[in-house]
Every structure is written in structure tokens, then in C-alpha cells.
Amino acid sequence: MTGSRIASAVAGVITALLLQASLLGPLTFPVPVSLPALLVIVVGIYAGPGIGMALGFATGLLADLGSDHPAGVQALCWLAAGLAAGMLGGLATQRGYGTRGVAALAALLGAATSGVLGLVLAILGSHAATAVLALTYLIPVGLTDALLGLLVVPLVRNLLRAQGIRSPRPTARLIGNADALG
């Protein structure tokens, strides 16, 4: 990973965490909407499962260290979200899903991630986390993630396509392709 890609990832994660803590968290309280989790999911959709997992674990661990619940819970849930997003995202991008389709996929994965995180926290006995609340907030989280996704998806897609931070990918040449012939 090049230095500019790492710097872009760090800047994106810190920005998402700051926006979550200062703006989104207070506005959506008590619904556990998570902009950093949505960012991990959208990056996973476009960049693949490996990058989604790495970004999910790093972002989740950073968020865990700033919270009062057991460290590592968000990291593991967001790692799984990045993996799932990367695996499903390949199918979505191959089929040509637009912004709305990717935002809907991200919203579904975001709501599922929020529900799993709430259930794990309830099992671990974290204060104010119950299985009933985790299931109650699935629909509000999904709807809010869908709206946020309409803003996050084009931003992430354009940033990942930028020349300075795009990873070099080998291109396959098709036999009989008119451009390859000449």
C-alpha cells in the first residue's frame, strides 16, 4: 500500500470517527447509527474483502479504544462487515449497481452489523445493551444508513478512483478485442 493510500485511509477513518462523535451520534441518539461502520462497508464493496477487513479491524479497534465497552468487539464486527461487503461488493459492481444499489447494499450490511454488535454486547453484559434493543433498532439503522449511503457511496467511489490513491490493478487482455488489435 502506498503512502498516499495509507494517508487517505487514515484521514477518512479519523474524519468519520470525529463526525460520528460530534454530529451524527448526538443527532441520531438513541439509534446506534455508525458512520465509520458504513465507511468500512462502502470501502469493502469497492476495494474488496482484504482491504475491507483491514480497514474494518483498524477502524473498529480505534473506535473500541474510545468507548466504554470491551475492546475488540467493534473491531471483530467491523472486520466481518468489511469481509462480507468485499465479497458481496464484487457481485454488485460486476452487475453495474449504481449509487442507490450500492447504498441499499451498504444499508443492509450496516443494519446487520449494528444488530450483531448489539447482540454481542448484550451477551457480554455491556451496560445498556440488550437483545431487544439490538433488534428494535434494525429498521431505523437501515433507513438512516441508506440515506447516509447516498452521500458516502459517491464520495468513496470517487476517492478510490482518484489517480493518486488508486492501487495499480493488472488488466486482462481479451483475445479478439478491437482495442488490443490495434
Rank of each mutant, 00 (worst) to 15 (best):
Y137E: 05
A129V: 13
G48Y: 09
F29N: 12
D68W: 14
V156D: 00
R161A: 00
P36T: 04
V33E: 01
A71K: 13
G12P: 01
P36A: 04
T113N: 07
V33K: 01
P70G: 10
S167Q: 09
A92I: 02
P168S: 07
A178T: 09
Q163G: 03
G90R: 15
A71I: 15
I165E: 03
A178C: 06
P168M: 05
P36C: 04
C77G: 06
L159V: 11
T15L: 12
R173I: 13
Y46L: 00
V153L: 05
L109N: 00
F57I: 14
F29E: 08
G142I: 15
G25C: 09
C77M: 14
L160I: 05
R166C: 01
L27A: 11
G118H: 07
L124K: 10
A54E: 03
M1F: 06
L27Q: 07
L61Q: 03
A9Q: 07
L23M: 10
L181F: 08
D179T: 05
G44R: 08
A112G: 12
L121Y: 09
T15P: 03
R157H: 07
T59D: 01
L39G: 00
G90T: 15
R169K: 07
L91F: 13
A178K: 12
L109Y: 02
L174K: 12
L76V: 15
S34P: 01
A21N: 10
P154T: 03
A107F: 06
I165L: 05
G48D: 11
L91S: 14
T93A: 08
L119T: 14
G118K: 07
P26I: 15
L181G: 13
L108A: 13
L27F: 11
A103H: 04
L91R: 15
T2R: 07
S34W: 00
A11R: 10
A54T: 15
A9S: 10
G3C: 11
T136I: 04
G89Q: 02
L38Q: 01
V33R: 02
Y97D: 09
L79R: 07
A47V: 01
P154G: 01
S114E: 05
G142H: 11
L35Q: 02
F29C: 05
L23Y: 11
G142A: 09
I139P: 03
L108K: 11
P30L: 07
A11Q: 09
A180Y: 13
G60F: 08
A103R: 03
G82V: 03
G182D: 12
G110N: 10
A54L: 09
L27Y: 08
G72M: 14
P26R: 13
V10T: 10
A11P: 06
I14D: 08
V33N: 01
P30E: 05
T93M: 10
A11V: 13
S34M: 02
A172T: 14
G3Q: 11
A172W: 04
G176S: 05
T93R: 13
L147Q: 05
R161H: 00
Y97E: 09
R95L: 08
S67Y: 06
I139H: 02
Y137W: 13
R100I: 06
A111F: 04
M53H: 10
G125L: 07
L150H: 08
V33I: 11
V13Q: 04
I123K: 11
S114I: 01
T28G: 08
A180D: 13
Q94V: 13
